[in-house]
Design a protein around this nucleic acid. Structure first.
Lengths: 157, 157
DNA sequence: TTTTTAGTTCTTTATTTACAGAACTAAAAA
DNA sequence: TTTTTAGTTCTGTAAATAAAGAACTAAAAA
């Protein structure tokens, strides 16, 4: 039914797209958005038109449109065009991966600032909790710094 | 209306709990679960009973029960008891913070394995995409390693 | 100028989520 | 033994989400 190690076989590919889509849902994406992601991860060539995506996923235009625009919004995908072809060819913007990791790190960093502010305002009646809170804040700062370092180091590679 | 730098004033505290609750919602928790978190972050003493939480938040028993059990499940909070007192005193399990960071890192790690498997099965027709995918996988592995290192380093401190 | 293409936007519907409130339960206290 | 406590579980509901399908639109092609 399928040959070699590649996803030549359509049914096999469709199942892979579904399976990886389900795994990707844990990152908070909708089923269709997750399948758009997994399709573009597996597809060859790696860029597909709106209608190719829609048809492959057997989903409605509105669902695909919303999913694509969501991904475009957060930088997960991007598109390119070809001269004399009005269609947009969507692809996973893997170059953008680091930026998205940075953005997540920033969320953690910002929340750490909130916790620092909390600690500053707490009374001295609960020293043990305060110490643990300080420890978590320091750990998180330490970790955020390591993540930043990793990103910088990777960039200059 | 309020004095010093502490959250002496109830209304002020309630507003802080709401505000930090809203910030915490971005990590995918429900409104009530987020407020349980922020209340236990700000509360003094740092451990509160079911009913204290319920009353402070002005929420239903079922909502608080579900929120608490969710937090107990993922290790965000824990409880202690006191001899001769049947109530459970819930508190933020800050000691568990690192473990939860580890668990998130594991999610990323697992998904990276999925991507590695995808790369292995892709044909050689789209070298550029494959190279970028390899780069993302390597970056993510590098980052995961840094996170692990940070956790280990912090543990032996 | 009409028609097709490549989508977007609007309307409707099914499902899920978040919560309230009431009914329930098991252990402890009275 | 009855009653209270400290919750849990069940039932109902309002609101939010996810998606289908149809109507729409702007640009390009015929």
């Amino acid at each position: 039914m399928h040959r070699n190690n590649t996803y030549f076989d359509m049914d096999n590919l469709k199942q892979r797209v579904e399976d990886i889509g389900v795994v990707y849902e844990q990152f908070g994406k909708t089923p269709i958005a997750s399948r758009v992601f997994s399709f573009l991860l597996l597809a060859e060539p790696s860029y597909k038109t709106f209608d190719e995506i829609r048809e492959f996923l057997n989903a409605s235009k509105s669902a695909v449109s919303n999913a694509i625009n969501g991904h475009l919004q957060d930088g997960t995908i991007n598109y390119k065009t070809f001269s004399g072809d009005r269609k947009r060819y969507f692809y996973l913007d893997l170059e953008n991966w680091k930026k998205r990791v940075e953005e997540y790190a920033k969320k953690l960093y910002d929340f750490n600032n909130v916790m620092e502010d909390v600690l500053k305002h707490r009374s001295n009646n609960d020293i043990e909790f305060n110490n643990e809170l300080k420890d978590v804040i320091d750990f998180q700062n330490f970790l955020n710094q390591k993540i930043d370092e990793a990103i910088i180091k990777w960039k200059e590679k």
